[in-house]
Write a protein that binds this DNA or RNA. Structure first.
Lengths: 169, 169
DNA sequence: CACAATTATTTTAAGCATAAAATAATTGCA
DNA sequence: TGCAATTATTTTATGCTTAAAATAATTGTG
């Protein structure tokens, strides 16, 4: 009996799921749903509370880390967005008084941009609230779950990187 | 001795981390990184292999589930994007021959859109490869890790929903 | 030194996304 | 029936995003 059930199961599998990747797809969709859900809420709150978009917030977050400011190229590498993207984003943040640009003293092609004092103050206020929102959103997880999720996501990231870049980086 | 260390620790904590939410922030950034990394790779492959964008792929995926097609409003609810967004997206997919639109027989305001036979065939080819990509990307996780991550993301989603909508849905 | 290659940034063209206003058709109800 | 409210879609204005081409300055090398 058991010597029949084994090939039968294998065949059934082969017919019903010629190459079953639906579980991975479900996992990906769940990850994406979480991410989209949270990101959307963050965008909404940033807009409602501070009338700021996420890209502007992200840009200011990068500048806040480096008091002396940095060039557009540095910023584009850190933010992992295209150079052209930053041009207009920076323009708008300069117009609203959050950041300032000046031509580099040593390289006339380059511009150093940095937060204005007002921009820094406003960013810090927003960042503090933002942190509290995130804590609230993840508040339903226990410390252990938090830790486990952290580890599993680290492993997911590695797995994805391997698939993307090939096994050798 | 122990009756002194307890208040001291509490005070130290209060000074160093007036409200420490940095761990949650790290968790969120890791989740976002994973999601962005994978989504970017999927976009890249869809473009390189099939010259299609993710929004177009997503739209066709929805239509593939419902052979009879659906209205723009239904589609916008399913895809969770704005109605206005779909207008141009649908226009382009009609222009490329992937989908077709016809005015509803019962409601002259509404349009039913559905995949053309060619659109369906092309989508199925893309979807099969897409599934394999995802399986490859998550291939570094064991079955147990897969299962654990699934569960933790489900819990994260619930936690986020509670934070977003308040405890009562 | 000259000039080719590189680097920093901007511009352009196209697509995706939203919110809000406009248009058009249907439905409910007095 | 008539007309107000609702529903389906499109349009408009704005912003984010990219890739690719253009512009401008610097650097390395013969």
């Amino acid at each position: 009996m058991s010597n029949q059930t084994i090939p039968l199961d294998a065949e059934t599998k082969a017919i019903e799921m010629p190459d079953d990747h639906r579980d991975e797809l479900r996992l990906w969709l769940r990850l994406l749903t979480c991410s989209t859900l949270i990101e959307g809420e963050v965008r909404r709150r940033l807009r409602d509370r501070f009338d700021v978009t996420l890209p502007r917030f992200d840009l200011m977050a990068q500048l806040d880390k480096v008091p002396g400011g940095m060039t557009l190229s540095d910023l584009s590498k850190r933010m992992m967005v295209s150079n052209g993207n930053l041009t207009s984003l920076v323009d708008r943040l300069v117009a609203s008084g959050h950041i300032e640009r000046r031509v580099s003293a040593t390289d006339r092609r380059a511009q150093i941009i940095k937060l204005t004092p007002a921009g820094r103050t406003e960013f810090r206020t927003m960042a503090a609230e933002h942190e509290a929102w995130i804590a609230e959103i993840f508040g339903g997880l226990t410390q252990k779950e938090h830790k486990d999720l952290m580890r599993l996501l680290a492993k997911t990231k590695l797995s994805a990187r391997n698939a993307i870049m090939g096994v050798a980086p």
